[in-house]
Every structure is written in C-alpha cells, then in structure tokens.
Amino acid sequence: MSVKMEQIGKKFGTFEALKQIDLEVETGEFIAILGPSGCGKTTLLRLLAGFLSPTDGQISIEEEEVGNRKKSVPPEKRNIGMVFQQFALWPHLNVEEHIKFPLEHHRFCSKMSTSEKKKRVEEVLDIVELNLFKKRMPQALSGGQKQRVALARAIAPSPALLLMDEPLSNLDAELRMEMRKEIQALHRLTKATIIYVTHDQGEALAMADRIVVMNKGEIEQVGTPKEIYTKPTSTFVASFVGKANLLKGEWQEDTFRPGLNKALRFNGEAVTKEMKAKGLYPVRPEQFQVLPSDANKEGIPAVITSVQYQGKEIHYTVQAEQGEWTVHTDMFSNFSLGDQIFLTLENSFREKEAYRRPQLVRQS
C-alpha cells in the first residue's frame, strides 16, 4: 500500500506540532520515523491512522485521499493494522481470541468460515511462535510474549499498512534485540508496508529500508540507513544519528582543513554539500584515531576527561580546543583519565605531503 503526505501541518491550539510535511512511501517499504521526544513523529503516525485530522495538507493511501483539513476517514475505514507502545491487550481474552477478534471485525478482512478463521489463527500463531501459549491470558505472559500477541493481532487480517508506535520501548535490551529480528521476519513474510516510529537510532538503522529523521515538527532528512549515517545533511542529523563530532574549519573543494591544526588536511569527498557550506566536518566517534602525545605532533591535541569501559569498546570523552568530543576505540586501547593525546583520521595528511601523494596512472 502506497502512502503520500503533502504539505501536512498539524496544530494543537497555537502549538504547531507538524510543519509542511511531504513524504511518499512505496508499497512494501519499511519506513522508520526517527526523532527525539516531542519531534512530532507520533502525531504523524496518528494522522496516518485516522486518529487525528490534519490542519493543513492532504493524506492519500493507495491514491485515495483519506485526510485533509475538512474531512478524515476514520481508522476502521482504513486498511491498516496498529501496534501500540503499551501493547493494549484485552485482559478478558486469551492469545487465540486476540488473534481471532480482527478476523471477525476488521472491515477489510474478507468473510471467513469457522474453519478458515481457525486456519488463519494457527498460521499467525506459527509466525509469532505462540502456538504453545494460545490459551494463556495476557497476565500470564512475559513482556516479549505480550508484544508478539500485539503484533499477531495487527497482522491477522492481512492489513496493507502496518503502523507501529515505539512497540519495543517497554522491553529490556535483550528482548528488544530479539523482537527486531521478529519484526524483520514479519515484514518479509507479510510484505506489508510498515511505518515504524522510534526514538532509538539502533532500531531504525537495523530494520528500515529508509529512515525519516524528524526534529521540531519538520523532516530533517530522508534516506537509507547508510545515507543517514554516513552522509548527514544537517548538524541535527549528524549529532542525533551516530553522535558525530562536528569539527570546524575551512573547505577547499573536497579537502577540509581543521581550524585546530592548519597543517592537517582531511579528505571530504563523502561529506554532503550542506555540511561543507557550514564549514563543518562530521567525524563519528569510531572514526577518530587516538595517539599518545609523543607519537604525532600533527594531530589535534586533546585531553581525556572521561573513560567508560564497554566490553568490546572503550568510550572516551575528550576536551579539545573546539569543545568536548566523543571517541570510541577498541578494547585494547590503554589511555587513562587526564592523558594528553592527539586525534587524527585515517584519511588525513600533512599539507607538505599533499603534493607527494601517489597518483593512479592508466596504461594505454
């Protein structure tokens, strides 16, 4: 099911929650709406579901207009499934009955005989691996099992559009990792269009075909996970996704000269024109190389102000002339609080070496 939002605005009194949102979603896509609390992502999802009406603009599903400032098609008349943050299970129905309910009441679900309903319930139980728990009541289920019931109920009538509002936020870290795999497998099996709201960049990067990064009611950037992570177009996207450090300096075409060391040059072919226009070079924490103070006087000087051991990684906070930066190294680095260090990148080179770099020559 394709979705199109054109110039969508939403106000609550004088507060403008959404500002001129334009977004197109292709049939079968997995779209993650990513952003901090209060950015408007849940409001956007509720507009798609039909729980809210837009103040401006129009929403179309399968080229049929379902929402504008004058009218809004109610949720029950849209071919959607919804997975809520709080599970929203009914305490008087067991697992099997939760899955059966939409088969009997969903407007877009074709009429089924008793045997067909039973077969569909068994199919969905197989998908979410809850066959052994089909007679259990919600209060007898774990958090992960409850989330699977919520997913099962949403997919049972085979909706063309599946909306998910931070469905994993109430689970612990290990369960979240498991449920990511479940949702990905669900997407492959159902081939439904999924729009998934989250504030967790790890979830968005791991599962989505495309990510929509939102901030203060506006879309900052839309792209594949790799594009969003490696080629941020704004300072917000750079710092929110991947926690990039923003170095200030000067650009000469695709070469960056950090203001902290005039002799250094960084290759910036992959940096977007928007970042270049602001005189910034985004460096993700894992891109920095950390060297002891006596190893390389051509790096950027800094002092380690925090050390956090994370098992496979060590996370450092360092104080440089331009401000506080975050640096991630492997577990074998051996720096301590207060150490004087130099920071550099693999693609950096000294100014006097720039003209001696080997060139690739094609043979005729």
Rank of each mutant, 00 (worst) to 15 (best):
I219E: 07
Q184D: 05
V271A: 00
K117A: 10
R107T: 13
E6K: 14
S53M: 13
G223R: 02
A152S: 13
R136D: 03
R107Q: 11
H105C: 04
M137K: 09
E104V: 01
G217S: 13
E346G: 13
P74L: 10
P138H: 02
L175I: 09
G299R: 03
K11I: 00
K70V: 00
R69D: 14
E166G: 09
R120M: 04
Q139V: 06
E253S: 14
E64I: 04
L52H: 14
R69S: 15
S2F: 01
Q340R: 11
M1N: 03
K4T: 15
P157M: 11
S53K: 12
D126Y: 03
Q363R: 08
L205A: 10
S37Y: 08
K19Y: 04
L161H: 01
E6D: 12
E24N: 07
M177A: 14
N334M: 01
A88R: 06
K4F: 06
M207E: 14
N245I: 11
F266V: 06
I228T: 09
V25E: 01
G202N: 10
Y316F: 11
T190D: 02
L125E: 08
T42Y: 15
D126M: 02
K226R: 09
A173W: 05
S2G: 11
A206V: 01
M164S: 05
M82V: 15
L34K: 10
L246W: 11
E26S: 10
E324N: 08
V361S: 02
K4N: 12
V3H: 01
D172K: 15
K278A: 14
L343W: 04
F288L: 05
Q310Y: 04
P74C: 11
A277G: 11
I33Q: 03
L168Y: 07
F12P: 00
A192I: 10
L175R: 10
H106Q: 15
I314D: 03
I183A: 05
L151W: 04
G323F: 04
S142H: 10
E96W: 09
Q201L: 15
V83P: 08
F84V: 12
A270D: 13
Q287R: 11
I195C: 08
P282A: 09
I59W: 03
Q221G: 05
F84D: 03
E253M: 05
E227L: 01
E76T: 03
E76K: 12
K118A: 15
M214G: 13
E123W: 05
A88M: 06
K10C: 01
G242E: 07
T224S: 15
S239Y: 07
S234L: 04
R362H: 12
T27D: 14
V283Y: 02
L45N: 05
G38R: 11
Q221L: 01
S333A: 14
G259D: 12
Q308R: 08
I21Y: 09
I155V: 14
